[in-house]
């Protein structure tokens, strides 16, 4: 088998736009898959030397340790505002935020909505895993009705705790949004589609076609109390029906660009 391991036979290797650091994510958490897809896209588009990432508060707070690009660390929910400040001062650079559902859809709702409404030329990678991972699995704005979390121990009661928010659908209503889609990371086919969407989102920014966001349905095995493999199944059975995958906004200019 060793003779197979020669450069001409190489099919896949760790993206060079990653640093050497192992991630701090729990085993099987699909945050890592999302990171890897972004790294692959940055490398393929040759963007690492002019990209600035904006890390959130949440499990991905240390995202800046893993990408070989300049990075800043935002306050909880404020990544789109910080990205706005960076992008307005460096309009020809690529600026992306990486945010979880508590960060983006709860405490940062104002920032994300207005960044999209302004048509801010940034890319947002939004990880929806239906709970607050870092703080220990509390109820998130994306937690499904009836879903048990550490702050909805009897299951989310929509009568008292309200309903989950579908961010992609909501942001798609804004005229400033150029490209808003939802993808999932639960199987190889969907991971491929997710990567294609991430690539499109960065292309949209590169061509200055407005705000772009890829929402990624993601797993949280530790807080869901499931194995990584069971988590994929749970995502497929419970999250997909509530959060349908699809292209919620492809602005005419984006469609015309045929990315």
């Amino acid at each position: 088998m060793a003779t197979l391991m020669v450069p001409e036979n190489l099919v896949y290797e760790r993206p060079h736009s990653f640093t050497d650091a192992p991630t701090h994510y729990c085993p099987g958490c699909t945050h890592g898959v999302a990171h890897r897809l972004i790294a692959e896209v940055l490398e393929e588009m040759n963007l690492t030397e002019r990209t600035i990432g904006v890390a959130p508060v949440g499990c991905a707070v240390f995202a800046y340790n893993y990408f070989d690009t300049d990075f800043v660390e935002a306050a909880h929910g404020r990544a789109p505002a910080m990205a706005t400040g960076i992008k307005r001062c460096l309009p020809d650079h690529i600026v992306f935020t990486y945010q979880g559902d508590g960060d983006l859809a709860s405490i940062g709702m104002g920032e994300i909505v207005h960044a999209a409404a302004r048509g801010e030329n940034i890319t947002v990678i939004f990880i929806n895993n239906a709970n607050y991972g870092m703080t220990g699995g509390q109820m998130a704005p994306t937690t499904l009705p009836g879903m048990k979390t550490t702050s909805s121990p009897d299951g989310r009661d929509v009568e008292t705790q309200g309903y989950p928010i579908r961010m992609a659908e909501m942001l798609a209503t804004l005229d400033g949004a150029g490209y808003v889609v939802r993808r999932s990371l639960h199987d190889p086919a969907n991971i491929r589609k997710a990567k294609k969407a991430i690539r499109t989102a960065f292309e949209v920014q590169e061509r200055k076609l407005g705000f772009s966001m890829v929402e990624l349905l993601s797993t949280c095995p530790s807080n869901w109390n499931l194995t990584p493999v069971e988590s994929l199944k749970w995502l497929e059975e419970h999250m997909l029906p509530f959060y349908p995958l699809g292209d919620y906004k492809v602005a005419p200019a984006v469609a015309a660009a045929k990315i």
């Binding site: 896949y12 898959v33 897809l37 199987d187 991971i191």
Partner: peptide
Amino acid sequence: AICALVCPDAAITVYREVTKAAAPVAAG
């Protein structure tokens, strides 16, 4: 390379014998 495609930790490098029947394609 499906293993590499689903790997959350970019831990896997994949090799495949180059034949006419199976030209390499990127994992993504």
